[in-house]
Design a protein around this nucleic acid. Sequence first.
DNA 1: GTTTGGATTACT
DNA 2: GTAATCCAAACA
Length: 190
Amino acid sequence: MRISSKFFKKDPVSAAKSLVGKRMVCGECSGIVVETEAYATENDKAAHTFTKPSARDFISNHKAGAAYIYLNYGMYWIANVLVKGNEGNGFILIRAIRPDKGIALMMERRGRKKIGDLCSGPGKLTIALNIGGEDHGKSFTRNPKNFWFEETKEITTVTSDKRIGISRSKSLLWRFLEKDSKFVSKKKGR
DNA sequence: GTTTGGATTACT
DNA sequence: GTAATCCAAACA
């Protein structure tokens, strides 16, 4: 069953946590979300909304569940989901998924043979799923032919940790991962 | 008009 | 450890 926009209308932190274990479908490929991070518009200096006015514009011009795709370091696209809750707006950063279907195609796009290396990082999974700047602003809940999330029967134990790869507000435990997963990004925090 | 700093990855 | 490579923001 596909996840509706209602899912993205609660606060960003609990939405990010509950997205772990869901299936992310994109064209012929899919995978189970094993790692996310939450970013909030309020009291979060690491969020794009703190430094980039364009991120705030994006929030006011789009609905909950929209895809916020960002080009980082000039070479890697990074996928986020817009969250608009009563307790504040923010984004869910999709950091890693466990490949499920379309693995051969993902290997071809990535040029890698190890399944554990296909989607174990935010820049990697966008390449594997063929997500790019042309998908910026599209919806995860209203565009059935591009990408969406599904409920699963996966039994996942979710743990929280500090966010990584950022220079501000590092102390918040807003990174959520599937416990003991071999498919999460390996880079250490702190 | 020029400079700077990233939600990173892969290779040495 | 570090090169690769681009855009929006910030500064002059």
